[in-house]
Amino acid sequence: MSVILEFQNVSKHYRVGGQDVPALRDVDLKVNTGEVFGIVGRSGAGKSTLIRLVNALERPDGGKVLVDGADVTAMSGTALRSLRQKIGMIFQHFNLLSSRTVTQNIAFPLRIAGQTDNAGIRRRVAALIDRVGLNEHAHKYPAQLSGGQKQRVGIARALATGPRILLCDEATSALDPQTTQSVLRLLNEINRELELTIVLITHEMQVIRTLCDRVAVLDAGAIVETGKVADVFLHPVHPVSRRFVSESGDLDEAHLRAAFDHVAGRLVRLTFRGDAVYEPMLGKVAREYGVDFCIVSGHIDRIGNTPCGQMVMGLTGTRVDDALAQIRREGVTVEALR
């Protein structure tokens, strides 16, 4: 796996009212070619600044940003512009030109890149419109489109010049949940079809869960946790990551803790991954070791393409330890809560 994007010891400050406010602190990050990399954080955590460093819409005070090994922070003029033409970007508020139709909006980056072959541009734009499913809207103005349709135009526009990286700046934050899902699906398809690297920032864990391969958690300008999405979701280490994960679930931590008092026996959290989710393992183990169990909470979900399940249960019986050992042998992670 090759690294397409790398942040090396990047820092950035803003001057606000005569005071230095750190926006990014010693950020180190590597993004592999072809992966979907998510950066999650609250508003003000520095995500926006971080993603804008990739195409030099903002410049760091220190450190390097390498795209394909070339330092973006040292670029200017023609070199910078041709780099930007190889990096697509979509935005929370779409940022389409209101004076141009869908077709003209998508053709705009091609014209900027200096293409003059009108027939070629027409073909390319038509193919992109078809790819994002806007055939009926080709000659409408952005004001005539819904939010989801506007973001599809944004995606088509970002793909026009055949970029190597797609930057998504809170791309679904202005959309309703259903539209969000359909836009995420489109991004997922594009990632696979074109082997396009996607870097996205969001404050919604749901987006990370649906789309990303890896995630970095950003808090107060620093990266506090990085890992595969499933790992971070199922076993968040840093308190900020934990909060994000628990907020994205249906049950919040406080409720769960309150429920613990009513459950007898050993309290454990089981984490299933992959096919283990579908095995009728619990019943078998319970019968074999004469153990009773009471489920306090549980859910089965999908993180990216992997089915995952997590369950909190109380176990009673004389051979609880043996039962848990057997469960571990079946490939399930067991954490003792009490």
Binding site: L57, R84, F91, L167
Partner: peptide, 11 residues
Amino acid sequence: GIIEATQAMGA
């Protein structure tokens, strides 16, 4: 945002 988007295209 529109200016930023156009800048990001390498204009």
